[in-house]
């Protein structure tokens, strides 16, 4: 199947500053793809170029095989867009707005179903401008889905939602994939990308710095961490003898009288050395955990920045 989105060597610059700097990536049909990056990495600019809001300054963007500017009228009905904010009249009611967007489409999903799934009935007759941020987010998502698109772009779909609603949105996005819809999402929550995404693209300063499935990105690291907790305090001199046994490529930190942490080359020998040492010193492990890197570690390694907005 041809890719749902193909971006090749996209460059966008504003006021002499490159917002997107030679970005190339593909989104496979029927997948959930997460675009991650710190603020200002170019995520929204890239998305808005795919949505036809911005014309590429250089390079090419193809969405469902179409040019988002030249083939605007053919493409728009086929995609669903969730903006980061706004997108509704200030005096409109949530359900009224959703029904209106539904009427602009040929075969919309029954708005009642989305109202129910996203708990929009709680918005009642409140005008849009007085809805909470989370309610506006949910309405934005519903508007993106109501036209039964083939491909949806969701810009930070769960920003400002409480954990329970966030889980509902995740289930919804997984159901979309199950029904054959391609989902492209930007997010600040690495947990969200790790749980949902088939493919993750990490952007930094307008460039692609890593791509892969969450598993591919988190394994293959060069450093493994072992954390050991024991039942009795370490015998005197024992940690030092472990450090000596592990050798200079490994770092050992004594956390307290009962626990220590070892970081070293990610191979089997480190673990073998630690267990042999336990046996020799008559140390009984209470727990021995192998630290697996998560997406957060990868992200920090690559971008050197926290993700919180």
């Amino acid at each position: 199947m041809s890719p749902a989105v193909e971006i090749s060597d996209l460059r966008m610059s504003y006021g002499g500053k490159a917002a997107v700097d030679g970005l190339s990536l593909e989104v496979a049909s029927g997948t959930i793809t997460a675009v991650l990056g710190p603020n200002g990495a170019g995520k929204t600019t890239t998305l808005e170029t795919c949505e036809g809001y911005r014309r590429p300054h250089e390079g090419q963007v193809r969405v469902l095989g179409l040019d988002p500017i030249a083939d605007h009228r053919a493409l728009m009905p086929r995609i669903g867009v969730m903006l980061q904010s706004g997108g509704a009249w200030s005096g409109v009611r949530a359900e009224e707005m959703l029904r209106h967007v539904a009427r602009l489409h040929a075969h919309p999903i029954d708005p009642d179903l989305l109202v129910e799934r996203l708990a929009l009935h709680e918005c009642g007759r409140t005008p849009y401008r007085r809805l909470s941020g989370g309610q506006q987010q949910r309405l934005g998502l519903a508007m993106a889905l109501v036209g039964r698109p083939e491909l949806v772009f969701v810009d930070e779909p769960t920003a400002g939602l409480d954990p329970q609603v966030r889980r509902t949105v995740w289930e919804l996005l997984e159901e979309l994939r199950g029904d054959g819809v391609t989902v492209v999402l930007t997010t600040h929550y690495l947990e969200e990308a790790e749980r949902l995404a088939d493919q993750v693209h990490i952007l930094d300063k307008g460039r692609l710095v890593a791509s892969g499935s969450p598993l591919e990105l988190t394994r293959g690291g060069t450093v493994a961490t072992i954390r050991l907790v024991v039942t009795q305090p370490f015998p005197p001199g024992a940690p030092e003898s472990l450090a000596a046994a592990l050798g200079p490529t490994t770092e050992l930190v004594v956390l307290d009288a009962h626990s220590l942490q070892v970081s070293g080359p990610a191979d089997g020998t480190t673990l073998a050395v630690v267990s042999r040492w336990c046996e020799q010193h008559g140390v009984l492990p209470e727990s021995l955990t192998l630290g697996q890197r998560n997406l957060e570690d990868v992200f920090l390694e690559l971008t050197g920045r926290e993700t919180a907005s």
Partner: peptide, 24 residues
Amino acid sequence: MSSTGTFTPAPGAAPLARQVLAQA
């Protein structure tokens, strides 16, 4: 791909006249 899913794609714009009426 299920053919009966809630979100199974069926994109399309409403006819122009219906859009104009809805918008008006």
